[in-house]
Amino acid sequence: MEFLREILWQVAPIRYFFENISRIITYTQNHLELTMVGVILAIILWVSVGIIIYRYPKLSHGVLGIASIVMCIPSIALYGILLTLPGFGLGRTSALTALVLYAMLPIVRNVFVALRSVDPSILDAAKGMGMSKQEVLWEVQIPNALPTIFAGVRVALVMMVGIATLATYIGEQNLGRLIQHGITRTHPTMIIVGAVVVSIIAIGIDLLMGLLGKHLISKGLQLEESK
């Protein structure tokens, strides 16, 4: 056991990881905090926008157009642009704003598409049984659209973890910092630790979201259609 530890200790990134564990934990906390706050804001905002453009389809073209343009902007460029705006500058406001903006396309589009593709006969039956518009939306449409909506949130969240890494350049103290400093100091070990930790977190969150989806989405929708 001791011997194994000796060997592992010789591997530079592992040694670096344990030597700097407290700093890495702080970075991870900051990283997760930023992404979580971002994703919650994004869900509240973009699910509402998705519902609105479903109700007023005339708006859908414009809103989705803006979303797909935002998605195109390289993330460091968006950070850069926000940085120069009055009221944003270095720090969390800019970082959060960028993250929420990037989540626009996957969430708004999936909400819109999902609500539209709910089988019309289900809605007809729901209305015919005397459900109000709100009841139809919350009890029938949203639960049925949930698999697609959830997939959008999942994509957004994983993307946000990645984009948050770059926020180190606008003052966030997160896992990107290891990469940033590693590059400027030409410290490969630091880079590797930073890159590996952030990748593991991103992949882990992706897998976690997959599991969460299985619990959150009605079992009835996860079944194969029988003949």
Binding site: I122, A125, S218
Partner: peptide
Amino acid sequence: YVIQEVGLFPHR
């Protein structure tokens, strides 16, 4: 109200 496509709620 009964319709051809039945319209059962698949999530319930």
